[in-house]
Design a protein around this nucleic acid. Structure first.
Length: 536
DNA sequence: GTCAGCGTTGAATAG
DNA sequence: TCTATTCAACGCTGA
């Protein structure tokens, strides 16, 4: 009897194990779906289907995924929130249905994946020896290991250097994979405990009201439908510029909302890439990375590459690319942010959208991440990262951590003086406050003059709007003006210390820097007093 | 070693 | 309403 196993050469999770019987001329294969919950452009599935006697398509539900989050102080919070679990289960139902159309089905197992699979192997075979594992890179555009090798063993730390190193993907203009028209049947599953795709309640989640649920449905079918809708408008694709998108658009989001489908592999990033390329080839002018739609896919690969090549990427300690910053440990401020009661409607509305939809526009994520960390509350980015990781339906380890490092000025981006205003940033896009009214209905009757700063509304207006600040909606937890200045000072100090520690600055220079910072403070005080004088 | 130029997406202000 | 400038000034890269 011959079983063979091979493992992924990259960090990407799309392993497939293929099992052979030495006596039979045709092998039996086991297709382990982890990510890559799709039929299209799935080299692992294609390989396991080719010339196999029986094919066992398996998904293992890992209870670890459902466990309470040890980092959270909120009771009942799990590692994965309800919305993402639902999205996953919907994706599995869709995958099962597609497999059935091809003459197969999805076998759902429960338990710790490695244990379950080994038990499953032993059930069918006497030993684990001789298993071939085929695990091609197909979750990302590039193999992160290739990029790291090209860069001399370390991942590139800027987007531009990544793009330069990456170049055109080898498969850019070749067909991705042959269409699968049928699959080998599922053989005898023996005593393995196979179940149907469970419903959320079976996994210990409370089913809640419909209005708490994400409007985005999981699965490959939905992904391909959404992709077709997105690329139908060729001008829109060609002129896509991420920073110009409207973060307050929620009836029709300013982006494709394909991220959750890419996260679970319901959509192949390579197929998406080719579709965009196809549109670009048929128009006169189009935008370019980093802002273009294609550029967004490259960002995803960029963060995967840095994440693979950076030990302790998901924390501040012992992370060589992360600035050491003495973040505060204020659980009350963290809770106010997490539970959408900071008193800043723009911030709170975004946090409500996160909880209800599991998705917000990229710039909205910037606003709340900046607010929690370097902008206002000075809370550790790891705490915010945990909340996002649990609640986002598109939560992806590499991308989520990468963006929190970015937004907190801990890595990649260092201009800590550029702070998103929790009031005026949203106002630019949505002066009437429709986004706030939708996600924070308590403020729905607040006049637009006050909706971004309701604490400044006269009591008579608050009464008329049936929203008393401090009673119906919280007062702001901090004064943005003071808090952001304090944050800037803290960041300047921390950076200075980082420079000193890395030995790039002499004691002499450090003294001068301190003097300069003192001068700044003196100048600031002077101008403040002058202003007071003018007012007086 | 030095320094200009650059970096996906700031805010406030002037025109 | 849109664009350009100013503000203040970070780290990294490459000439």
């Amino acid at each position: 009897m011959r079983l063979s196993l091979s493992l992924s050469s990259s960090h990407c999770f799309l392993p497939l194990s293929r099992t052979f019987s030495s006596m039979a001329s045709r092998p039996n294969s086991l297709m382990w779906f982890r990510k890559g919950l799709r039929i299209h452009d799935n080299p692992a599935l294609e390989y396991s289907a080719s010339d196999s006697n029986y094919l066992y398509p398996v998904f293992v539900i890992d209870p670890h995924y459902m466990e309470p989050d040890p980092n959270s102080f909120s009771p009942g919070s799990a590692r994965a929130g309800l919305n993402r679990i639902r999205f996953l289960l919907e994706s599995l139902v869709d995958l099962d249905s597609s497999l059935q159309k091809l003459g197969s089905r999805l076998l759902v197992l429960k338990g710790e994946p490695s244990e379950v699979l080994i038990r499953c192997f032993k059930e069918k075979y006497a030993s684990e020896a001789g298993i071939e594992v085929f695990s091609p890179v197909s979750h990302t555009l590039f193999n992160p290991a290739d990029i790291i090798r090209k860069n001399g063993g370390r991942p590139p730390l800027s987007y531009q250097s990544f793009v330069k190193l990456a170049g055109q993907p080898s498969w850019a203009s070749s067909p991705l994979s042959t269409m699968i028209s049928s699959l080998p049947s599922v053989g005898n599953v023996g005593n393995c405990e196979i179940s149907e795709v469970p419903i959320v309640k079976e996994l210990g989640y409370e089913d809640i009201g419909q209005d708490e649920l994400t409007p985005f449905k999981g699965g490959e079918s939905e992904a391909l439908k959404r992709l077709r809708e997105s690329i139908k408008d060729k001008e829109w694709v060609a002129n896509f510029e991420k920073p110009k998108g409207d973060p307050s658009a929620f009836l029709k989001p300013a982006t494709t909302v394909l991220s959750p489908y890419l996260k679970f592999g319901c959509l192949s990033s390579r197929y998406f890439y080719q579709c965009i390329q196809d549109v670009q080839n048929n128009v006169n002018r189009h935008t370019s990375p980093p802002v273009s739609l294609l550029g967004q896919l490259l960002w995803r690969d960029f963060f995967y590459t840095v994440a693979v090549g950076t030990p302790n990427f998901d924390r501040m300690k012992d992370n060589r690319i992360c600035k050491q910053i003495p973040w505060s440990n204020d659980d009350e401020l963290l809770a106010a942010w997490r539970d959408a009661r900071t008193g800043f409607p723009w911030i709170d509305a975004i946090m409500v959208q996160l909880r209800k939809w599991g998705w917000m526009h990229h710039l909205a994520r910037h606003c709340v991440a900046c607010f929690l960390t370097r902008g206002d509350l000075f809370v550790h980015w790891e705490k915010g990262r945990d909340v996002f990781e649990r609640l986002l339906i598109d939560s992806d380890w590499a991308i989520n951590n990468g963006n929190w490092l970015w937004l907190s000025c801990s890595s990649f981006f260092y201009q800590y003086n550029r702070i998103y205003s929790p009031t005026s940033f949203g106002k630019k896009y949505d002066p009437n406050g429709n986004y706030i009214r939708h996600f924070l209905p308590v403020l729905k009757d607040m006049p637009k003059e006050y909706i971004y700063e309701p604490w400044s509304a006269p009591l008579s207006i608050q009464t008329k709007a049936k929203c008393i600040i401090g009673k119906d909606y919280p007062k702001p937890v901090v004064s943005h003006d003071t808090a952001s200045k304090e944050c800037k000072r803290n960041l300047a100090e921390a950076y200075e210390l980082n420079r000193k520690l890395s030995g790039l600055v002499s004691e002499e220079e450090l003294k001068n820097l301190r003097k300069k910072s003192d001068e700044d403070q003196i100048r600031e005080t002077k101008s403040k007093r002058q202003k007071q004088k003018l007012i007086g």
